[in-house]
Write a protein that binds this DNA or RNA. Structure first.
Lengths: 387, 387
DNA sequence: TTTGCATATGAATCGCGGA
DNA sequence: GTCCGCGATTCATATGCAA
């Protein structure tokens, strides 16, 4: 599937703004916004420990595996025990998978995440090995293709999807996920695990001088964009160990992320280089981190009283006026004999184990109930303006 | 999760029309249209070689739940915490998987096929072991749930699908696939690998005397119907090694297939028996693929950006140009310091409690304002076949 | 009878930061 | 590292009761 593009390239500087990442314990500097041409494992081994925030991998389909699988003799063997000779090709693919995943794991920061995309030929093996290595699967995602190639012989279902696995380096709880941003771009409904995205065609598809596609499995930029928007921040370092013609790098540049691209094939790397050079980043306002409720500064309820937004002695009620509590000067609430935080007293009032007091309690303003969360927002706005 | 159903049952005859299959090389008769209560492996070992045409397996998923989960309203999610789903390690789960798959393989006819359903917790392991044992994967199928449980903490994508693997016993090319029937039931389009089917709820869901669900993971009959119609013939013997409350058997009976059901739990088996007794086979003329249910063609605003119909950084305006907002790369809008969906920001701009962003916002095309709803229509038209 | 509101629920690996 | 408390978080259906 090679075209006539480019010759031997040992290292390609992709961007004039390329810099290096801070030294790590290994004392090596990671080359940012560049493509490293060479063996994937060797290139990974040259990177510093804990230096990347996100990995996106589109690993190769093992040709040897394909060849071995077409052998006609498997039906003759009534397999109960493993026959090494028979499964040698799977074993080789597994060993390769284990090597590159292990190498990726080393260069990932502790809270980094990894994405892998594959089809039924390889994704089950990749997923099982991921788990064996200690990665922690967060979701499997289905890329539903808008326009898949039909099954010409009519012997199977149209292969209309590919599978992505999203996993953290370990089962530690911290990872990047822009939940609210994705929800906001989806009619205020949380984004599901099935994504409907067209194939990479038309102008987006890289063509050689002969008009033929440069790479057989070029992924759509829309797919990478959703991955990067969901699970990385502007400025994050995104590593693609099988860069191909550079979709990951192009989208990373467009969205204000840094990238490290590894590619064995100089032709692909050269095509990727030219492609990336032509990418203009979108404006920072279009990609700047959106304010998430979780990351907003904490506001003690007491601050609202101190700011005069709520008076000591006022009565708080729930939306429908079924529960009420008295505001004390110290920022606690009084309900019968009980004194406690807005959350504790809200939970107590409803007989529930927990409660978000900010959204549960209301004060009366101009004859209508106003959530105290609105007062908190006003406080934050005023505070920001003052600061 | 047991209900008060039934007591000890050693073998349950489900149908008065039950017969036995022809003797095999092992000289054992397979009990047809019956449920065998007992250990799955032992029961499989009691069946004759090469005696079944199709296997459908819904094995334990090995879910690894760490804590109780509550909905935002503090109600408790009734999770799958049954003993039968607990395994000490991946290694143990793998060994279990290898045992039952190997046992199934023996009782499958040479041209028989097998289906397994699972989630990301187990399906990668199952798929890899399938391949190791010599099964030949034909497709992986995605069951897209119409009404999945949301992700209550907003920490991941909604887990909106499960995966099925369809595989033959070996790489032999012969297997049953009713391509034309499925195509006919799908508006004369090839049936794709992503199926949109609702959860099993309402009257179809088996309830105990206490009104609670009998089985935590009962599958929808529509799913089994599509599987059996696609990959089996009337009169074929369908084996389910994890019958549960009998969906496979009930659909098999309805569609004129024979079944062998294995179930460890006498309570589940008894419920299945009663259920199956109430099933009437449909006339053979009516045994055709149920029309595919089409998902609602909801289009995320983000998809318009991904498709290049709107560029990140563009300005949206209302019809008369009195309000404007900036399009962000993630499909949210930016208005002053506020970031939110097209609906939220539309409402904010007008000072209204709600707004339909699709009709409110416009982009400029050829010097004239175009509602973004028109772009959505264009997107739908371009990809309507896949909805 | 119809309409509308309140409630129930589904295979789920479902916080985070400061002390 | 652990502990503790704040406070963030849900969608499509089905059903039952009230008006």
């Amino acid at each position: 599937m090679h075209t006539g593009i480019a010759g031997a390239v040992s290292r390609i500087e992709v961007s004039r703004t390329g810099t290096t990442a801070p030294d790590s314990r290994m004392g090596l500097a990671a080359p940012l916004d560049r493509i490293i041409v060479g063996d994937c494992i060797a290139s990974l081994d040259s990177l510093a420990d804990a230096s990347v925030d996100l990995v996106f991998a589109d690993p190769p389909y093992n040709l040897q595996l394909e060849h071995a699988l077409t052998r006609p003799d498997q039906s003759l063997v009534d397999a109960v025990d493993d026959d090494w000779d028979k499964f040698a090709s799977f074993g080789e693919y597994d060993a390769f998978t284990r090597r590159w995943l292990t190498a990726c794991r080393r260069v990932m920061k502790p809270d980094a995440a990894l994405w892998v995309i594959g089809s039924y030929h390889n994704i089950f093996r990749v997923g099982a090995i991921l788990q064996d290595l200690g990665f922690w699967i967060l979701n499997d995602i289905v890329w539903r293709k808008a326009n898949p190639m039909p099954n010409f012989r009519g012997r199977r279902f149209t292969n209309a999807h590919e599978t992505l696995i999203w996993a953290t380096r370990s089962s530690s709880k911290r990872y990047t996920f822009h939940y609210e941003a994705l929800k906001g771009g989806n009619d205020d409904l949380q984004m599901r695990s099935d994504w409907f995205i067209p194939l990479c065609t038309g102008d987006e598809r890289l063509k050689g001088a002969d008009g033929r596609k440069v790479h057989p499995t070029q992924k759509p930029e829309a797919l990478l964009a959703r991955v990067l928007l969901a699970s990385s921040n502007p400025g994050d370092v995104v590593l693609d160990p099988f860069l191909g013609t550079g979709t990951t790098a192009a989208v990373a540049k467009k969205l204000g992320r840094r990238f490290i691209g590894l590619e064995q094939d100089p032709g692909y790397a050269a095509a990727a280089e030219r492609r990336i050079a032509g990418v203009s980043p979108v404006t920072s306002a279009a990609v700047a981190a959106a304010p998430a409720r979780r990351s907003e500064p904490r506001v003690p309820f007491l601050s609202l009283i101190e700011a005069g937004l709520i008076a000591p002695g006022e009565t708080l009620r729930d939306q429908r006026g079924r529960h009420q509590a008295l505001v004390r000067a110290d920022g606690t609430l009084l309900l019968g004999p009980a004194v406690g935080s807005i959350h504790k007293i809200g939970a107590l009032a409803q007989g529930l184990p927990a409660c978000n007091g900010w959204t549960f309690w209301h004060v009366e303003r101009a004859g209508a109930p106003v959530p105290i969360d609105d007062l908190r927002s006003a406080f934050r706005t005023a505070f920001k303006a003052a600061a």
